[in-house]
Write a protein that binds this DNA or RNA. Structure first.
Lengths: 112, 112
DNA sequence: ATCGTTTATCGGCAATATACGATAATTAGT
DNA sequence: ACTAATTATCGTATATTGCCGATAAACGAT
């Protein structure tokens, strides 16, 4: 009764992993942050805030999501936090997404 | 006051598009559905329900999300709905995601 | 027309995500 | 020690998502 199924039970592990990448990218702010970090190689938090139409605290939360998925790393540098992309993880993400994409495209012909 | 910013304002159009792909993939059920459709080329709704640990109505909602993003197409066939992957859109999605991935990896060296 | 089958949608509830301001924490500089 | 600057976290309000059962809608078969 009232089971409140948790989101990630009953699904294959690789599928869950892929879905997590999806979630990480599922907000424009996070995609923008990644792009910013790529363009500038590295950014302090304040610079990111300046480039987003969001409050500092909100940006910080998005940074956390990205950090939790490992896509970015943060380093405290004095009073500021310096963020950069974790290339390794980005590659891992793209590998997973491409694996999905490839398997979808391989047999894409529609029988309908 | 109480601004409740809408989620997709103030962001670049391509970023919003990428984030939408992310959202589409952001749930294990949807990734599973896509994979199922790829494996079998085509499925009626009931078969999909049978392979997911979710109620029929819930699966139907996930199908709708995928349909709204154009990743799958549904065709009514008598009393049943036959779904299949829209290869075109999947390619478009992967192109967008890879475009992001490439731009992230290109300048990945971390300055931290 | 009625019944059985299948799928979509509705209504409602719980959980999560998103947003903000306020505050705490950390550090540099004085 | 105090102040200013920067960032993370907290508290909270709202929106969205996800889930289910129930119901509606569409169709085939009798």
């Amino acid at each position: 009764m009232g089971v409140t199924r948790t989101r990630e039970t009953g699904f294959a592990a690789d599928v869950v992993r892929t879905a997590r990448w999806g979630r990480a990218l599922a907000h424009p702010a996070r995609v923008t942050i990644l792009t910013l970090l790529a363009e500038r190689r590295t950014c302090v938090c304040g610079e990111i805030v300046d480039d987003l139409p969001l409050a500092q605290s909100t940006v910080s939360q998005h940074l956390r999501v990205l950090r939790e998925e490992g896509l970015i790393r943060g380093e405290v540098d004095g009073t500021r936090s310096c963020y950069c992309i974790d290339a390794e993880r980005v590659r891992a993400m793209m590998a997973d997404l491409n694996r999905l994409g490839a398997s979808l495209e391989r047999k894409a012909a529609c029988g309908c």
